[in-house]
Write a protein that binds this DNA or RNA. Structure first.
Length: 282
DNA sequence: CACCATGTTCCTTG
DNA sequence: CCAAGGAACATGGT
């Protein structure tokens, strides 16, 4: 399910339902989904803990837990297909359950079809991350200086998490389209003006996605398939019913701005979508 | 059968 | 040593 906006909206949902809940038992169904901790240690350490809060850093979820005023943290990552939600105890576990937590009220489920996601008691990963895109730490002058240090294509550069975190494959294409920058140009060839436009475009793209996800009637367990709307669909019930993504996944379709056909290229083994006419260097 | 898929890490190549 | 490219992870959809 996840890029930064999806994780942010998930965190807001979990923050509504988890704080105050006590974990009665933990069951790890997929050992590889818990790393690097052993399953036994993981299950035992979390049993009896209560949730204090759920926050986000990049695409990671941070669960703050406590037991008799002793605090612990658990890190979560959704990978490509992870999802998390609270279901009634009477409901059955989904086919690809990675781990489940019996709560004093309901059950917290971590479902993950492709099992690229992770739960961990080790938060070391967070230390190396670049600035949060929607915080003061992400400013256009540092961003520009960072871009100058590499000849990698700008699109590929955005996916590395040192200049800015949380920009994934979909929103990288979207932000570059909004900033009218060719995704293939080396990052050190961007002008100061382009860096500034891209900085603003990244923030606007992510902010709008969060706003959309926060207003949609999302179905967390996915029974109605409605969480798909968040990524690729249309704003349900909205009058406009307008496509939300401007270029991603639109190969061969007309550019919303100029009508030219949207192109698909492969960079670092991942798809990039862009409009050759609108996204010119300079 | 072929090719595609929202993320991250690790290995190889130059 | 470094930067860049690609494979790997695992499962499913079209």
């Amino acid at each position: 399910m996840p890029e930064l906006p999806e994780v942010e909206v998930l965190v807001r949902y979990l923050q509504q339902v988890l704080p105050g809940r006590r974990i009665r038992a933990v069951t790890v169904k997929r050992p590889k989904s818990v790393r690097p901790d052993s399953v036994a240690v993981f299950e035992q350490s979390l049993k009896g803990q209560s949730v204090v809060s759920v926050t986000r850093r990049a695409k990671y979820l941070i669960f703050e837990l406590e037991q008799r005023s002793r605090k612990t943290q658990m890190l979560g990552h959704l990978g490509m297909t992870g999802r998390m939600y609270v279901q009634p105890k009477a409901d059955s576990l989904p086919k690809h359950t990675a781990a489940s937590f019996e709560l004093d009220k309901g059950r917290f489920v971590f479902e993950d079809t492709r099992y690229f996601g992770r739960l961990s008691l080790c938060l070391e990963l967070l230390a190396k991350l670049g600035p949060e895109p929607l915080s003061e730490a992400f400013n256009s002058s540092d961003f520009f200086r960072g871009l100058q240090r590499s000849r990698q294509a700008i699109k590929v550069r955005l996916l590395a998490s040192d200049l800015v975190v949380g920009v994934g494959n979909i929103y990288a294409s979207e932000a570059l389209f909004r900033a009218t920058i060719d995704p293939r140009i080396p990052s050190n060839k961007l002008t100061r003006a382009q860096a500034k436009r891209l900085h603003a475009a990244i923030q606007a793209t992510l902010q709008e996605a969060i706003a959309l996800g926060s207003t949609l009637p999302l179905d967390w367990s996915g029974k109605e398939g409605r969480d798909q709307l968040f990524y690729f669909g249309r704003e349900s019930g909205a009058k406009s019913n307008e496509e939300r993504l401007l270029v991603y996944g639109r190969k061969g379709e007309p550019c919303h701005r100029c009508g030219a056909q949207i192109q698909r290229v492969v960079q670092a083994a991942r798809s990039t979508f862009f409009c050759v006419r609108c996204q010119k260097t300079r």
